[in-house]
Simulated assay, not measured.
Amino acid sequence: MTTSQSAKPRVAVTLGDPAGIGPELVARLLADPGTTAAADIVLISDERELADAQADAGVEFSYGGPREPRLHDNGAARPGAFERKIATEAGGRWAMSNLRVALEMADAGDVDAIVFAPLNKSSLHLAGMREKDELRWFETILGAEAYTCELNVLPTIWTARVTSHVSIAEVADGITRENVLGAGRLLHTVLRDSGIAAPRIGVCALNPHAGESGRFGRHEIDVIAPAVAELRTEGVDAAGPFPSDTIFLRRDEFDGVLTMYHDQGQIAMKLLGFDGGVTMAGGLRVPICTPAHGTAFDLVGRRTASTGSIRNAFGLAARIGARRAARNSTVRHSA
């Protein structure tokens, strides 16, 4: 069924690293009737993983019937029971095989969005992922050519990063006019896709006190401010650069904040809303969302992990997926 024939977006869901809390979170998400009412869900998994997930969570959910999630077996050879609470090659390989199928379905137009439960980067690298993180792996699988970056989302504020998973020593070299423009444009576009008609974006400085007129560095003068000015000529409501130690105190003035490096925004976002945060892979052909927290090996089997982030990730993916699918359908019908 195409999205134009259905009022609901099609969302692929994977259970993340089997060693962590992902299977439990997905089971609890799917046990809520409101989840299945919001989207046509395709579970990339197998029956054993779904049974284990329900046992982890102490809940039951139905799949395979009318108006229920559909199981799409990933076709991978299961290695047996997965070791829990530890990063393993087997767990990483399983998580990647599920995600690869979801990405291929998105690339073929069979789903409008993807949600994945938390991954463990050590498991992914043990399983052979050569890229620094899953976003770069997604780029490889999808053959992405446009600017991409990781976005972090709370109900009241978004952030995007000019640099992400690089060492602090490499950050300054990554703060270029082209990268600031790319991240700013992407944040503006995704905020509009989420339903904000005229996004307001605040831009962080790189240096303390925004460089203090060049005394502590010239990135603000030579790179960031000119990029902000160019964004404004393109119709992006961007302002800055502002000192990063105060910009989040002004968050009511902005819908999104463009940060220069990973922890500049992540520390603030996790303090403001750790249990509800969402990470989105921005700039790809399909919205891909996941909880902003990790696999939480210490919480496995305790049934105490919060579902706030996975619920928000699912809601955001469904909302953006529906808007993009409707727009693509309009383009196809008008061509």
Rank of each mutant, 00 (worst) to 15 (best):
S123D: 10
G143L: 05
D133Q: 02
V153A: 13
A144H: 11
I114R: 05
W137A: 01
L151K: 02
D173Y: 04
D173C: 02
I175A: 04
T159D: 02
E104F: 01
N152F: 10
C149F: 08
V101S: 03
A113R: 00
A108Q: 11
C149D: 12
I141D: 08
L124S: 13
D133I: 05
D110V: 10
A113E: 03
A127M: 04
T163C: 04
L154S: 00
V153D: 11
V171H: 07
V171S: 05
G109L: 06
L119G: 03
S167W: 09
A106C: 02
F116K: 00
G143R: 10
M96F: 01
S123K: 08
K121W: 07
M105Q: 10
V111G: 00
K121Q: 07
W94V: 12
H165T: 02
N120D: 15
E134H: 14
P118K: 01
N120L: 01
K132T: 13
E104N: 14
C149N: 15
E131R: 11
A102R: 05
A127V: 09
G109Y: 13
L99G: 04
E104L: 11
D133C: 05
K121H: 03
D133W: 09
S122K: 13
I175L: 11
P155V: 00
I175W: 00
Y147D: 07
D107W: 08
C149L: 10
T163K: 06
E145H: 12
L103R: 03
R100N: 13
N98E: 12
L142Y: 09
H165W: 03
E170N: 10
L126N: 10
R130G: 09
A108G: 13
V162W: 04
L135W: 02
A108F: 03
P155Q: 03
R130H: 11
S122H: 14
E131S: 10
G128Q: 05
A95W: 05
S123Q: 02
C149V: 01
L151N: 07
T140C: 09
A95T: 09
M129N: 00
D107R: 15
P155K: 04
V166R: 08
I141V: 15
T148R: 06
T156F: 12
S167N: 13
F138W: 12
T159R: 00
V166D: 06
S122E: 12
I141G: 03
N152I: 11
W94N: 08
L151C: 13
H165Q: 07
E131D: 12
D133P: 07
P155D: 11
M96I: 07
A113G: 02
L142G: 09
W94L: 10
V166Q: 05
E150A: 06
V115C: 07
V111Y: 01
E139R: 14
N120K: 09
V115M: 02
A102E: 03
Y147N: 06
L124K: 03
A117H: 06
D133M: 06
L126D: 15
S167M: 09
G143N: 09
G128L: 06
R130F: 08
V101E: 14
V111Q: 07
A95E: 01
I114P: 02
M96N: 09
E104K: 14
W158V: 00
G174Y: 05
G109F: 05
G143W: 05
V166N: 07
D107S: 14
I157L: 15
I141P: 04
L119M: 12
V101G: 04
S167F: 07
S164A: 15
S97K: 08
L154Q: 04
L124C: 14
S122A: 14
R136T: 14
G143S: 04
L135K: 11
D133V: 01
T163N: 00
